[in-house]
């Protein structure tokens, strides 16, 4: 992609976003939609100046839950995949267990986490973790396994060690897969943290949404949804930037 082409794409995408907001504005004003059903974009922005909602504190709490759970999932997921790939025995025994665990709707774990860890940041981060963990394990394990047999022969003909194969071939070869899992997990982690806040919590943007629902402050609910999405977008963007830095273009898995 040339510089001109990418500028054109970014410009067009920005324009499309503006168009959607404009359509939203026109729909609510021309349609005389009541504010408690759908606020205008401007009403939504104005919700931010209400100090009693303590936006900044709530953003920080939700961000900590999402990013904390996510980092835990990336670290734990990659580590688990490494262990499975190193030991055929562990792989055969515990990979099926992991797949069974993956069948659990992670949201259903919420009440349990609350019993175990009480209200607050930790159980919500753990729900985010549990939902983001599996795609990372599965894609990383797949990436580590995906080695050309002939390439292994080449290394073995030089009496290369298992460690050399791992460091020089398996791990760098798995990076694109790890990133593809990380992208899926980024979206899931956001959902996990918010569901956790819905289930039981006294802080965070999800908690705030439930509070303002009672008073029908729909504009604040809209703002909360937008801020949650932005936290997700930020995470996703960071993952993509990191991927561009570490993974050679041709090796990327879309």
């Amino acid at each position: 992609m040339t510089a001109g082409e990418s500028a054109w794409r970014i410009g067009l995408a920005t324009l499309a976003h503006v168009a959607v907001i404009l359509a939203w504005h026109l729909f609510t004003t021309l349609g005389n939609v009541p504010k408690f059903v759908m606020p205008t974009p401007w009403d939504t922005v104005l919700a931010l100046i209400q100090p009693e909602y303590r936006w900044w504190d709530n953003i920080l709490v939700t961000a900590a839950e999402i990013y904390g759970g996510y980092l835990l999932a990336v670290g734990g997921g990659v580590l688990a995949a490494l262990v499975f790939t190193w030991s055929r025995w562990l792989d055969a025994a515990f990979m099926p267990v992991l797949v069974s665990f993956n069948m659990i709707p992670k949201v259903a774990l919420g009440p349990l986490f609350i019993v175990w860890f009480s209200y607050g940041l930790l159980p919500n981060a753990l729900i985010a973790f549990s939902i983001a963990f599996f795609p990372i394990v599965l894609t990383t394990a797949r990436g580590l396994r995906e080695v050309e047999p002939d390439l292994l022969d080449l290394v073995r003909s030089l009496r290369g060690s298992k460690w050399q194969i791992f460091v020089k071939i398996q791990l760098p070869g798995a990076l694109p897969y790890i990133f593809s899992g990380m992208k899926v997990a980024a979206i899931l982690a956001v959902a996990g943290a918010i569901v956790g806040e819905f289930l039981g919590s006294d802080k965070g943007l999800g908690y705030l949404m439930l509070q303002v629902q009672v008073t029908l402050d729909t504009a604040a609910m809209f703002m909360a949804v937008i801020l949650i999405s932005l936290l997700g977008v930020l995470l996703y963007a960071l993952v993509i930037v990191l991927e561009r830095l570490v993974v050679v273009r041709d090796a990327r898995v879309s």
């Binding site: 002939d150 390439l151 022969d153 080449l154 290394v155 003909s157 071939i169 993974v247 050679v248 090796a251």
Partner: peptide, 28 residues
């Protein structure tokens, strides 16, 4: 150390530059 191998597929490491690909056996 006295075997060199070439296969039907080049099997180059996608993430390495050409020179670094050639270096692989020397590194091992």
């Amino acid at each position: 150390r006295d075997i060199g191998m070439v296969f039907q597929q080049a099997l180059l490491l996608k993430w390495r530059r050409i020179l670094d690909n050639v270096m692989l056996p020397a590194e091992i």
